[in-house]
């Protein structure tokens, strides 16, 4: 880490005032589980760090009258797991958050930081850039080892994958985001928050350097069957190779509408219309779920080393659908993955 000045504002307004309008000058520190690593590796070298943990008003989980929820940006992951309202109304979310990272990280990491965390791409983390280039201008990712890289949205120059294992499910639930900036607050659908950068000057989300994520709004999930399925090699504390989140509204035993979002497959959480269409008005069983998995990856385009991820994404979609309707899926160990309707 390079030297920096450190401030702990107590209000959103104050925090905003301390942030520079230019990326690189200042960084927001929440749980620090991502930011400090990036700073230690000199990927980020802010001259000022604004600790927002003492900012008031961002640490609550509130239940809405209709069963919806608002989660403050500073709520730590462990509190989401433990919150009765979340466990009752969004059981798949409680389970997914419980499966993220490790006990220690869940105790430290905030949900706001989770949405804003930077990609784990090993070129990026090793200081070669988010859109790394070889001396002759080719993509280092395309030329190099891209086993963990994107199979969607990889037309270039971005090939990294969106890291959060929680975000796809939040998007499937239809979450919205509140962001505070110099000009007041704005609200947008969570999926709109993520974007594929076209140049080194851009980041992978729609956040200005002097804005703060303040709150996540979850619409009521009454009547929604949701699940998240992660393909992870290790039993626990391991970045998944592909994930899928589904949220279904049912009409009897048939799917009325579906939101299917894949993670770790594209520079942004990847919403699959193809999979949703494949399952529309159908009863979910092994065949229809498989077909939805196949549809989900029909437009995937693998790089030199990540063809296997196409299969894994299809499996994740299929199994997430089956879990959502309460069917059992092959399971190597109970500790391995999240689920729950």
């Amino acid at each position: 880490m390079i030297q920096f000045e450190y401030l702990s504002p107590s209000s959103v307004k104050q925090a905003l005032g301390l942030l520079s309008p230019n990326w690189g000058d200042t960084e927001v520190l929440a749980g620090g589980t991502d930011l400090l690593g990036l700073m230690k590796d000199f990927v980020l070298t802010p001259k000022r760090v604004v600790n927002i943990k003492h900012v008031s008003g961002l640490e609550a989980i509130r239940s809405e009258g209709d069963g919806g929820a608002r989660i403050g940006a500073l709520v730590t992951l462990d509190r989401i797991v433990e919150a009765a309202h979340i466990r009752q109304n969004y059981p798949a979310l409680a389970q997914t958050v419980a499966d993220a990272a490790s006990t220690q990280i869940r105790n430290m990491a905030t949900i706001g930081g989770n949405l804003c965390q930077r990609p784990r791409c090993w070129y990026f983390r090793n200081g070669m850039g988010l859109l790394p280039k070889t001396p002759d201008g080719k993509s280092m990712v395309v030329e190099g080892d891209n086993r963990y890289h994107a199979i969607f949205g990889n037309e270039g120059p971005a090939y990294f994958v969106s890291p959060s294992t929680i975000v796809p499910l939040l998007i499937a639930y239809g979450a919205r985001l509140r962001i505070a900036g110099a000009d007041g607050e704005r609200e947008l659908a969570l999926e709109k928050f993520f974007r594929i950068p076209g140049s080194d000057a851009e980041r992978e989300h729609d956040l200005k350097p002097n804005e703060l994520v303040t709150e996540i709004l979850l619409p009521s999930a009454k009547g929604v069957r949701a699940a998240n399925y992660e393909v992870r090699q290790k039993a626990s504390f391991d970045w998944p190779l592909a994930t899928a989140a589904v949220a279904l509204r049912m009409n009897g035993s048939a799917v009325e509408s579906a939101r299917i979002v894949m993670g770790a497959v594209a520079p942004v959480p990847w919403v699959s219309q193809e999979a949703a269409q494949a399952i529309a008005n159908k009863t979910i069983n092994e065949q229809t779920a498989s077909a939805a998995g196949a549809a989900a990856v029909s437009k995937a385009r693998s790089l030199s080393h990540n063809n296997y991820k196409v299969k894994l994404a299809a499996v994740a979609v299929k199994r997430a659908l089956l879990v959502a309707v309460g069917q059992t899926v092959p399971d190597l160990s109970t500790a391995q993955r999240g689920g729950g309707a």
Binding site: Q3, F4, E5, Y6, L7, S8, P9, S10, S11, K13, Q14, L16, G17, L18, K47
Partner: peptide, 13 residues
């Protein structure tokens, strides 16, 4: 003083 409130600056030293 920022946004009408005081805040301490620590460091960089």
């Amino acid at each position: 003083e920022v946004a009408g409130q005081e805040v301490a600056v620590h460091g960089p030293g």
